[in-house]
Nucleic acid binder design. Structure first.
Lengths: 153, 153
DNA sequence: TTATATGCAAAGCCTTTGCAATCAT
DNA sequence: ATGATTGCAAAGGCTTTGCATATAA
């Protein structure tokens, strides 16, 4: 998705749900769009703070929830980790392989999965908002696996 | 998977990783295998307590982690919820649609997804342990959606 | 024998909540 | 005008940790 498209979608969503269009929400949206993949709430909060953009941690959390509900942001809950977010900016759907030893994350795409989700939702009478696929695995290449690298030391 | 198959896999895993085969671990494994789908750590802990099977909460958590690493148990982290677990007992791979309004969960199967994961892991040189796919959606059928049911009251 | 696992309670940590002040509509 | 939102700090709740004790190998 493109920046303007995302912004419009969020504003439309707020109007539709009778939520107010506040300065904070728009600032958080803008800042989130400037984050790199997989940021967490605090990273966003501190980035804004550093740029003298005011918004409380509570509002950041709440707004991220709204953005997720709106479908312009994906909230990932990898096992045991804090929630990580990812905007839909300039991305096609992608998924994650997570190494259970070293937590290395590899992204991969597969358009078939998205099509499959749409069909599943139609079949079960759901309106698709978002989806996430996590593959838990172990690096076979020991040189790639930070866990094994550590063990070597 | 079958009960004996799961138990053997866990014991082999413990041996392989030089973890000890303790009474607690085996009791927790047994109790987990008797849980219905989607239990959380505390549900298991209290179920054991009720049956006078001793194991501390800390050990329950640690053992569930081991079981997950071993691949006989899946740990789900649905957004905002506590971790929920599911053993591989008598199940084929299945996935979840979660309603963002009412949290209703619908399970579905699709063997193509499992095949796809295996290929992805081979391609990226990972050893597949587990995978989870979560579809976030909204019930279209308002009578099915507890959220809307509540609103009606 | 001895390194690992257990159990308890306490700490940790991410996230949510309550409430007074502020702001969008 | 007035109901929603914000911000702060404090509470909440799941999970992990530290340490003494117990135990598997």
């Amino acid at each position: 998705m493109k920046k303007e498209e995302i912004k419009n979608k969020f504003i439309d969503f707020l109007k539709l749900k009778s939520h107010r269009i506040t300065n904070e929400r728009l600032l958080i949206l803008d800042s989130a769009l400037e984050m790199k993949s997989h940021f967490d709430a605090d990273e966003l909060y501190f980035k804004m703070k550093k740029g003298f953009i005011r918004a409380s941690r509570a509002t950041v959390y709440k707004t991220l929830d709204l953005m997720s509900e709106c479908g312009i942001l994906t909230r990932h809950n990898f096992k045991g980790e804090r929630s990580r977010y990812e905007t839909k900016l300039g991305k096609s759907y992608h998924y994650h392989i997570i190494c259970l030893n070293c937590s290395r994350i590899v992204e991969f795409e597969d358009p078939r999965i998205e099509i499959l989700q749409k069909n599943i939702c139609r079949k079960h009478n759901f309106e698709l908002i978002d989806h996430t696929l996590q593959v838990f695995a172990v690096c076979k290449d020991k040189d790639m696996c930070i866990y094994y690298k550590k063990l070597k030391k």
